[in-house]
């Protein structure tokens, strides 16, 4: 069981290391964003500039607010409301995903990577 405990520790440590490496890779590849692209059911619903403060009603599913160059979800008709608790996004490639509503809010522009992860 001693050896197992050691291997358990190695497994946990590797998971954390992989997470940290991925986090850094994603972070570095992001520049400042310029616009917000909202996707509903896999189709682009609309693109809105980040320097233009406004509120967008997305198909009655949720309301996105753009303020001071940052986008966040202010209200949602879904049950969990996880998307509302997400932090506001402003860097290229950052996303807020509402799974129940099938809505993706993504910042575009800047040094955005073309490759899809």
């Amino acid at each position: 069981m001693k050896g197992n405990a050691k291997r358990d520790l190695i497994l946990v440590a590797s998971v954390v290391l992989v997470a940290a490496a991925l986090f850094c890779a994603f972070r570095v590849s992001r520049g400042e964003g310029t616009a917000v692209e909202i996707t509903v059911d896999g189709k682009v619903y609309g693109t809105y500039p980040l320097d233009d403060d406004r509120e967008i009603d997305v198909d009655g599913r949720l309301v996105v607010s753009i303020k001071d160059g940052r986008a966040s979800v202010v209200s949602s008709s879904c049950r969990g409301g996880d998307c509302v608790r997400e932090r506001a996004i402003s860097r290229a490639g950052e996303t807020i995903v509402c799974l129940p509503g099938a809505v993706i809010i993504r910042v575009t522009g800047g040094g955005e990577v073309d490759a899809r992860v």
Partner: peptide, 29 residues
């Protein structure tokens, strides 16, 4: 989620989920 939403961008959340798995998995174990 990525397959259903037709987008790979959800994977940006993977580092958070992996870290969470390490913590919750250890606690549950």
């Amino acid at each position: 989620a990525s397959l259903m939403l037709g987008s790979g961008y959800a994977f940006y959340y993977l580092p958070v989920l992996l870290t969470a798995a390490a913590v919750t998995g250890t606690v549950n174990g």
